[in-house]
């Protein structure tokens, strides 16, 4: 009797794991969409809460320290989405970094972000000789925003 319960319980847990691994959840555990995927959704992707991830297109960052207005372009190499956000970005935010923004894609084709996260790669290297750690560079921006 007790053994039956254990085997039954084990079967349920294994089934849940199997479902997690191979089932429909695989689609839902995608934490963010790429610009290409978001744009491919067409009007379905407009106005609904969604996360968008990609790289900050180098040279696209426009930061107004007075109004705390931040504009940049997120790219996946194939497509691009312009993003608008307010407030100081996380300290690691900069040109060329990976980012994930939370918010809604507006009808004007601009993603209105309510949250901004930096996504790091798995590479850890000190700056090459002649380069400076970006931390110092960011310090200047943060100070100018205060």
């Amino acid at each position: 009797m007790k053994r039956g319960w254990i085997i039954g319980g084990a079967a349920v847990i294994v089934a849940v794991f199997a479902w997690l691994l191979f089932g429909g959840l695989q689609k839902n555990v995608v934490f963010f969409l790429t610009p290409k995927e978001l744009l491919a959704k067409g009007t379905d992707g407009v106005g609904v809460p969604v996360r968008l991830g990609g790289q900050v297109k180098p040279g696209s960052v426009k930061w107004n320290a007075q109004t705390l207005d931040l504009r940049f372009i997120v790219t996946d190499g194939a497509r691009e989405v312009p993003v608008h956000s307010t407030g100081a970005p996380p300290q690691m935010f900069r040109d060329g970094m990976g980012v994930v923004v939370e918010g809604r894609f507006g009808t004007a084709g601009v993603f209105e972000a309510t949250g901004l996260m930096v996504k790091h790669s798995n590479e850890y290297r000190p700056p090459k000789p002649g380069e400076e750690a970006h931390e110092k560079y960011k310090t200047l921006i943060q100070q100018s925003s205060q």
């Binding site: 695989q26 555990v29 995608v30 934490f31 996260m117 798995n122 850890y124 000190p126």
Partner: peptide, 17 residues
Amino acid sequence: KWWRTLHQPPSSPATLD
């Protein structure tokens, strides 16, 4: 590796100084 996450994939000696 299986899913798209905010957390980065594991580093290896190849990606680590």
